[in-house]
């Protein structure tokens, strides 16, 4: 856990002016950490980091290499690539969760970070939803339907499941876009071995 309850954003950017600008924009809403190259970025990464803004072109480790190490370490953070040019390849297949092309405006940066945080929130809700559904299945397997009808616990569970289901359908616009869809599936594969 971080010291504050605010989400943690790690900026990995070799140009100090650019990094400072991002920090200035984000610091009111998030706890911001800064790394000046890929190695430092990997050092600063731990479970408390929610979102990484990763410059693609840096001296030393490239953004792609840093991403690969992040995925290997199986950290739950979401990663947005920051590029100088609009990428001409399929961003989704590369394993990034989002991308921002320079120059970035404050509003864009906020939108991207918020969307990535919402995806993490979705993952959490989905995990909670699964736990309750599994609990329901266990109850149904161990009790008769008469017993279930009497059970307050079962009633409450069903109600909670209903609430979570509608919360999920509103989150991320109900998985309305391709990037959200792929990133959510990627989150499943990443978390599989836990």
């Amino acid at each position: 856990m971080s010291e504050s309850d605010r989400p943690v954003v790690l900026i990995v950017e070799d140009e100090p002016d650019v990094a400072e600008t991002y920090k200035l924009w984000l610091r009111n809403d998030y706890e911001v950490r800064m790394a000046h190259d890929g190695d430092e970025g990997l050092d600063l990464l731990d479970d408390s980091v929610d979102v990484v803004l990763l410059d693609r072109m840096m001296p030393g480790l490239s953004g792609d290499e840093v991403l690969e190490r992040i995925r290997e370490r199986d950290l739950g953070c979401r990663v947005s690539m920051v590029t100088a040019v609009e990428p001409d390849f399929d961003i989704l297949e590369m394993g990034f969760d989002a991308y921002l092309s320079k120059p970035i405006r404050s509003e864009q940066l906020h939108e991207t970070v918020e969307n990535l945080l919402e995806r993490s929130e979705y993952d959490t809700l989905l995990q909670e939803y699964y736990s309750l559904v599994e609990k329901q299945a266990t109850l149904e397997a161990s009790k008769s339907s008469a017993e279930l009808e009497e059970s307050d616990e079962y009633d409450e569970l069903k109600e909670e499941i209903g609430e979570l289901k509608s919360e999920l359908s509103e989150s991320l616009g109900g998985i309305g876009d391709d990037a959200d869809f792929i990133a959510t599936l990627r989150g499943l594969s990443n978390g599989e071995d836990e």
Partner: peptide, 20 residues
């Protein structure tokens, strides 16, 4: 290939995508 938790989540996410 994968556990029921992951398949459940996959089904849920796919259903949401199909809904959209």
């Amino acid at each position: 290939y994968t556990d029921k938790k992951t398949v459940f989540k996959l089904c849920h996410i796919l259903s949401s995508r199909l809904d959209s």
